[in-house]
Amino acid sequence: MYSERDTNMPYTISEIIVLFFIYSIIGWLWETCYCSIKDRHYDYRGFLFGPYCPIYGFAVTTILICTHDVQNNIFLLFIVGIIVATLFEFVASLFLEKVFHIRLWDYSKLWGNIQGRVAPVISLFWGVGVVFLVKFIQPFVQSLVNIEERDTHGWLAVGITIVMGIDTILTIISVERFHTTTRMWDEHINSFIERVRVRVESRMSEKGKLKVGDWHHSVIQHFNELRPQPLSWNHKRFLRSFPKLKVLDAPKFMEIKKDILKKES
């Protein structure tokens, strides 16, 4: 079953799943505490509904597997950690953008960044983090996993797979609805701006192109008329917990998202 070890792998499948789950929770706790302190209000972090951040789980398990043969050499561990973590972060950013049309982080203002997805200073941070993780955190976590493997024989991994699988499906549905709602907002705003432009130009003695300036206030004034549908709790959580979140094909919604959140509260 899950607990059978492949001779080519340093961990069994069930160990990988449990490690993934543990580090997803640790990542969620870290981000929630750090961002709540930084933003001075409670941030329920994590892309999924549950209290875990899978991106940390995927990143750490990938790093543990890829660095297994160099864990006794701190310099090689640091270098391999930088490479693996940077590649993972780049691919994760690209995946979120291409599949969900959103971007959760943006390093565009940092020196040497690549498309705002990765940056040298962040990569160095990941390198140090990998060394600290492998040398100080993983030994303790692995001892817990060994006890779990002995007592449950891999059945905990089955439960984790089912729970997080359902959560992932529900989250994908929620994100797709969020994407649809934000695009509808943009369509309604553009239509509203066009109606205002036509109405104003019809009263002008000389016809010409009119640049509609500050449309933000007018849109909020007509909020109930323009709102395509209310934002769900999870959609509002996305906007509050991820201040750098960008819906790439709904730019006007992004411009007034704070005002919309105030109206939706």
Rank of each mutant, 00 (worst) to 15 (best):
S218K: 14
F178D: 10
L48V: 02
H216N: 10
P228R: 04
E89C: 12
W215I: 02
F49E: 13
S14M: 11
D151L: 15
I162V: 12
Q115T: 15
V163N: 01
F88Q: 03
D167K: 00
R237N: 04
K252P: 15
P139I: 03
E201N: 14
D43H: 15
H101M: 12
V141W: 01
R203P: 09
W28R: 13
V200P: 09
F95I: 15
R150S: 11
E201T: 12
H216C: 04
N73V: 04
V91M: 08
K252E: 13
D167N: 06
D39H: 15
T12C: 11
V118M: 01
P228L: 02
H217D: 14
D6G: 08
F238N: 09
Y11R: 15
I13G: 10
R183L: 06
F242Q: 01
S202D: 08
K135M: 11
W126C: 11
E149K: 15
H188Q: 14
I74V: 06
S241T: 06
V247Q: 12
N72S: 07
V134D: 03
F238P: 11
G159I: 03
F223R: 07
K209G: 12
R177S: 09
T161G: 13
S218C: 13
L110Q: 10
R45D: 02
I260L: 03
G208F: 00
L77C: 13
L170R: 14
I17T: 11
W28C: 10
T152Q: 02
M204A: 14
I13D: 09
W30P: 05
K257R: 15
T7M: 05
S36L: 08
H217M: 14
G127F: 08
S3G: 15
E255W: 11
L239G: 13
V134A: 04
F132H: 04
I82P: 11
F90E: 06
Y44K: 10
E206V: 14
A157M: 04
I37E: 05
G50S: 01
A250I: 02
W155E: 08
L210T: 05
F47G: 00
F90R: 09
V212D: 07
V200N: 04
T61M: 13
I25W: 01
Q115Y: 13
E255Y: 07
I22S: 05
P51F: 00
P251W: 00
D39I: 06
